[in-house]
Nucleic acid binder design. Sequence first.
DNA 1: TTGAAAGCGCTAACAT
DNA 2: ATGTTAGCGCTTTCAA
Lengths: 315, 315
Amino acid sequence: MTNIKDIARLAGVSVSTVSRVLNNYKHVARDKRESVLRVIEEMNYTPNKNAIDLIRGETRTIGVILPYNNNPAFDQILNGILNKALEHDFSITVLPSIYSKEKEVEYLKKLKSKLYDGIIITSRANDWETIIPYTGYGSIVSCEYTQHKEIGCSYMDRYSSYLDAFQLLKNKGHYAVAFTTARIESNSTKQMIGAYKEVFGEFQPKYHISGCLCLEDGYKAAEHFLHLPERPTAVYANGDEVAGGIYLYAKSQQLKIPADLAIIGQENQPIGIGMGITTVDHQLTKIGEQAFSLVIKKSREKVKIPYHIVERDSV
Amino acid sequence: MTNIKDIARLAGVSVSTVSRVLNNYKHVARDKRESVLRVIEEMNYTPNKNAIDLIRGETRTIGVILPYNNNPAFDQILNGILNKALEHDFSITVLPSIYSKEKEVEYLKKLKSKLYDGIIITSRANDWETIIPYTGYGSIVSCEYTQHKEIGCSYMDRYSSYLDAFQLLKNKGHYAVAFTTARIESNSTKQMIGAYKEVFGEFQPKYHISGCLCLEDGYKAAEHFLHLPERPTAVYANGDEVAGGIYLYAKSQQLKIPADLAIIGQENQPIGIGMGITTVDHQLTKIGEQAFSLVIKKSREKVKIPYHIVERDSV
DNA sequence: TTGAAAGCGCTAACAT
DNA sequence: ATGTTAGCGCTTTCAA
């Protein structure tokens, strides 16, 4: 591999001069600049980026921690991040965590080891207390709200959106309402249950199924709900694919949507458009875009992205 | 920032000893190893990965060039890549190209600049002739077949799958068949047209619409097809979301699926399951997994991944 | 405008 | 078993 020293020698200049033309500095004589460029061309030289990153102490790369890499919601956030990264000429490294605390810490250590200029956490397993110390090594932005001043947030008002969705159902005359969530221990499950209580008074565990990520999960959840003695008349799914699965199972039981079962999904995904499912759109792409903007600004702002409900034919 | 020198000094040993314990080498006395570990702990030290990458000349990072970052097909491939990367403790950097030749070359230069150990090209705008020289700087694997010996391939037999899909339609009595593709200049459009000719004799431009990526594009394509004087009785869509859009438009015109219009999609995506759309599953996740395996083995094998047709209710 | 030289933080060959 | 030292390839003072 040819290096900067070779170029300098062949161009008859010093390495610092080569460095100067490489970085477009002024104060380089025309002829020297040209001869350096010629040699670079001839030798087909490209500077070693690791050496540059080592010296500069920055990499123009952002790491994105996300639990699942095959989940449409996280794909939407990632999409937003990539949009902005492309625009700002940053690279994005995807860090799949499967909600493993160890994996997450491993990734935070990579921030510390200077591989990334910052990290975006789309969702997490660790406590903020274990994450915050790493803000000393690069900017950390979360896609979930936290009051900790060290962390920038690009988030949505989950609680309020859950409230709206349940209220919509209640307004349509539904009182036996079921819902699905992804992780039982997650913040969003807690908020979902909270909102449920606020709207319907008491939480009934039989009307809640966790661990729902994809269409098949929704199908199974519906199977459970619809075999309950007092079967729900509506269900709020944590994603349109899960909602689609619920829809399919209901249909397989000859139920009419929404007459026999109302369904509301989340994140305005293609399947929801296709199947005409009402959905709560948290604008995840925008969340991702905003998260990226915050992380490169090293900002610790808390930016709330508005959600809206898209009414279709399933409620 | 504390560095290896500081640790050596504080532990009362040389940097090489510190390096040895860092890399789990043998021949380090118990007490020295322990005191080094203690100081590392106390100082909360993490080695600078850029320095290590610089010396080792490898980064355990693979770059993945993909044209769109919000396209379900490429998401499936990326998903497969990430599965394997996680397993093998490699990092994945996403390189969005929007089919720009310049962007692609920029990414290949990053391979040359030693940022990645290899690159996976899911789809490309450049000729192989301009890509191949970069195989000198790291392994390059393609998700599309090419006979060039320098390039490993994890691919599907597109032509044969197109043939099968068109034949399926023909067997069901369809002769006026339309189809959609993503990019007019792409290889897969060429193969699609070739397969069409082989099955139906002649290619009719009015039955082909390019530039279809999402549901909305499918909707518009259907609008076009269904207003043709001799409207097609079947359409093969380049993706299930596009197929979903076609389905929706047909429904909006009171057409029955498949009686009035047969629809076949591609890639077995959730929306297709939800809407009951027959699809050609090219197993993109497996393509991604295999591509990753090839790239880290620096293999130039050509591995064909089998496809299969999933029959549902739209044909 | 240019070059010499001192790092950036680490590994590894070599010597002991 | 351990330390010395010469790099890895580049940037950036500093002096000229």
